[in-house]
Write a protein that binds this DNA or RNA. Sequence first.
DNA 1: GAGTGGTCTAGACCACGCC
DNA 2: GCGTGGTCTAGACCACTCA
Lengths: 245, 245
Amino acid sequence: MSYLQVAEELRRRIHSGEYGPGDRIPSTSQLQEEFDCANTTIQRAIRELKREGIVEGATGSGVFVRTVRPVMHVTASYVTQVGDQPRASWKSEAERLGMRGDQRITHVGTVEAPPEIAVHLGVDEGEPVAIRRRVMLLDGEPVQLADSYYPLDLAQGTPLAAPGKLVGGTVGVLESLVELGDFEEKVRARAATADEQRDLKLNPGAIVLVMIRTTLTTDGRPVEVGYTVLTADRHELCYRLPARA
Amino acid sequence: MSYLQVAEELRRRIHSGEYGPGDRIPSTSQLQEEFDCANTTIQRAIRELKREGIVEGATGSGVFVRTVRPVMHVTASYVTQVGDQPRASWKSEAERLGMRGDQRITHVGTVEAPPEIAVHLGVDEGEPVAIRRRVMLLDGEPVQLADSYYPLDLAQGTPLAAPGKLVGGTVGVLESLVELGDFEEKVRARAATADEQRDLKLNPGAIVLVMIRTTLTTDGRPVEVGYTVLTADRHELCYRLPARA
DNA sequence: GAGTGGTCTAGACCACGCC
DNA sequence: GCGTGGTCTAGACCACTCA
């Protein structure tokens, strides 16, 4: 029995409903006996399932089939203003899904621009830039790490460089400083780093979506670069593209 | 020594340049000696690095630091027509990066609509729909699996339901059949399934981006649902959002 | 304190690449 | 045929939960 076969069989049982959402699957020693293989082989299979997000381990009590949790649709609603309606906020989007959305500001200050941020923000690598770091919570659980970077000359003396929440969100504040043009968004996926695992309470090897948003003025000057890390199992990004432009 | 510590140390050496791109890292037995730990601990650390895409195993010859390969920017250029310019194609986008882009059509026919496709296509689950499956290749290596689904009544008797390449791409053909409105795109990330691992030549646990694109007519009727699986280490998706709409 | 998940070790074994 | 990556086993050990 290979660990891939064990994983495949367990996956089958879960999808067939034999092990329903929230159920405890048989203990590792039971599975070991059933599949007639070693401890480690079972563990490895379970590790795969955890990484796929369909199962959750609870040391000391069991391995449980994860209840399918609603995905957060992060859309242009945060940035694109439609008519006179206010833009969506994290809180309002969470409420729309019947959940509680909070945000915790973890750091406000200046840092040396990391290479990738520098490119998007149009500054030299290592040049000081303003940074706002926050953690987005859904029902109290951290699900996103959102870092925003600003050119120092723009942010200095504004609420962007001050601790505390921003009324109207970052986009609202920016709007009062410059004339906003388009937003450019890049999306990637990768394994979570050690830091991200800690801050988002993820297992090693968990998958995250990375969204890099550059906010431009009408004359094309970048005024904000957002580097957001989202847990892949709870998020889905949504875009709308026109047929003609 | 835990496998996480070993992984962290190797990661550090790679990022510091001690092991450069293309280099062979020390053999597992050498590492085993250096870190004074067991075979399996080393293997597990290497497994993590492989999943992160920074290292590549070659059975029988060694483990090599991956050369950073250019990411393919998949943008709206495929679907949104700007003025009178022709839309981008897989081939043209690959060439723009100095690579060769091919596509292999693997299946054309009808299938019962899978649940998620059915929702987006506005048909009942299990209802027959037309399907076109293709594999996108970059320099001969498979990097994307692109499945397109169409309502049967629309596709029947058109090139969409016929084997062979579509002149002008799927969007071009659709355009000749209906009046195209917007495109709606959803993006997720997850671990590759066993089938995807096989078709894209990925290791177990490799990460993929999933892009679900619904093509709508001007009156909002869905006419195509594309389910595309992209290898996460070679792709980056790019969008542009307006400040106002 | 019994049972659980989770990690580590030591050693066996296989398939593969290379000389 | 030797060294390489890669997988499996058997067993030890720890931390944790729950009764």
